[in-house]
C-alpha cells in the first residue's frame, strides 16, 4: 500500500486537482450557465499562488487564498459583464476569457515570467491537504445538490422562467455559479502549482478546457460524483492504455466522442437511470391496482 502510494503519488494528487478543476466547470453547468471561465480562474489561481510564494514567500494557504479571492472577484465581474449572454455565445465568450488569461500570462513580463512561466514555487502542500480540501468541497456541493437548494438549482437550470415564478432570483443564482466556479478553479490551480512548483502559459490553454470538459462529459454533469468519476478515469486511463501502445490517444479520442454523442448524462447518469428503472420495476411489481390508473392512461393529446 505504502509502496503503491509512493509510486503513484503524482497520479493520486492529479486526481484531486483534476476533480476540483472539473467541478469548476460542472457547477455552472449544473446551474444552467454554460461558462468555461473556471479554467481561466485556474490560471489566475495558479499564477497568483506562484507569485505570492516565490516573491513574497507567503505560506501556502495564504497564497492559494489570495488567488481564490482575486479569481472570485474576477468571476463576479465577469458574471456582471456577460449577464446578457446565453448558450453558445456565453460558452465562446468564456473560452475567449480563458485564452485572454493565457495571453496576459505571456505578456506579464517579470511578474509572470513571460512565455517560459514561473519556477520554484516551493511549498509544503501534501496529499493530506488535498484530500481534506476535496472532502470539504464535496461536502458543500453534495449539500447543494439536496433539499431546497438542490431543487432551486434544478429549477434555475431546467426552466429559468418557471424558477422566477416560484420567487427564485435567477440572476443571483447565475452570479453565484460564476463565483463558485472561479473559487474552485483558482483553488485547483493554486494547489497544482504549489505541488508541481512551476506554471507556464501553455499549461492553461484550450486543451485544459477540453480536458476538464471531457471529465464531466464522461463522468456525468449532474453531480459531484460524476466529476470524481471523470477525474479518476482521465487521470489513470493513460496508464491503463499503455498496452495499446501508440494508439492510446486515438482510443482516448473515441471514448470521448462516444460519451459525448451517446451518453449525454455520463457514466453517473447511466447508473442513475439504471437504478431508477430498477426502482420503478420493483415499485410497479409491488403496488396493487389501486392508484395505477393515471399511469396506465397516458394521454397522447397536447394542449391547444
Amino acid at each position: 500500500m505504502i509502496a503503491w502510494y509512493d509510486t503513484n503519488i503524482i497520479l493520486i494528487q492529479s486526481t484531486f486537482v483534476g476533480l476540483l478543476m472539473a467541478l469548476s466547470l460542472q457547477v455552472p453547468i449544473r446551474f444552467g450557465v454554460f461558462s468555461f471561465a473556471g479554467i481561466g480562474c485556474y490560471g489566475i489561481g495558479a499564477y497568483v499562488a506562484a507569485i505570492m510564494t516565490i516573491r513574497y514567500e507567503w505560506p501556502a494557504a495564504a497564497a492559494i487564498g489570495a488567488g481564490m479571492l482575486i479569481a472570485g472577484v474576477v468571476g463576479y465581474l465577469l458574471a456582471l459583464t456577460v449577464r446578457r449572454l446565453g448558450g453558445l455565445y456565453l460558452g465562446m465568450a468564456t473560452i475567449a476569457f480563458d485564452l485572454i488569461v493565457g495571453v496576459l500570462a505571456v505578456n506579464g513580463g517579470d511578474l509572470t515570467g513571460g512565455p517560459s512561466g514561473l519556477f520554484g514555487a516551493l511549498a509544503d502542500v501534501t496529499t493530506l491537504h488535498l484530500v481534506l480540501i476535496s472532502a470539504v468541497v464535496i461536502g458543500l456541493l453534495a449539500y447543494s445538490e439536496r433539499g431546497a437548494i438542490g431543487r432551486r438549482v434544478e429549477a434555475v437550470r431546467e426552466d429559468p422562467e418557471l424558477a422566477a415564478s416560484m420567487g427564485i432570483d435567477v440572476r443571483r443564482h447565475r452570479q453565484a455559479a460564476f463565483v463558485i466556479s472561479a473559487l474552485l478553479g483558482a483553488c485547483a490551480g493554486g494547489l497544482n502549482v504549489l505541488l508541481r512548483t512551476t506554471i507556464a502559459p501553455t499549461d492553461i490553454g484550450f486543451s485544459l478546457v477540453v480536458l476538464a470538459l471531457t471529465m464531466i462529459i464522461v463522468g456525468g454533469s449532474r453531480s459531484w460524483a460524476g466529476a470524481l468519476i471523470g477525474a479518476m478515469i482521465f487521470t489513470w486511463l493513460p496508464g491503463f492504455l499503455e498496452f495499446s501502445g501508440q494508439w492510446q490517444k486515438v482510443i482516448y479520442g473515441v471514448i470521448v466522442a462516444l460519451a459525448a454523442i451517446w451518453v449525454p448524462g455520463g457514466l453517473l447518469g447511466m447508473m442513475t437511470d439504471a437504478y431508477r428503472s430498477w426502482q420503478r420495476s420493483r415499485r410497479d411489481a409491488g403496488s396493487g391496482d389501486g392508484d395505477r390508473t393515471p399511469l396506465g392512461s397516458r394521454a397522447e393529446g397536447t394542449p391547444a
Partner: peptide, 29 residues
Amino acid sequence: RAKDHRSGEMQILIGGIGVAAIPLAIAEE
C-alpha cells in the same frame, strides 16, 4: 436525442470537441 434546441446546441459543441480528438490523435500518432 436532444430535448430542445438549447441543450442540443450545447451537446453539438461538446460532441464536436469529442469527435475532433480522433483525427487529431491519429495525426499526432
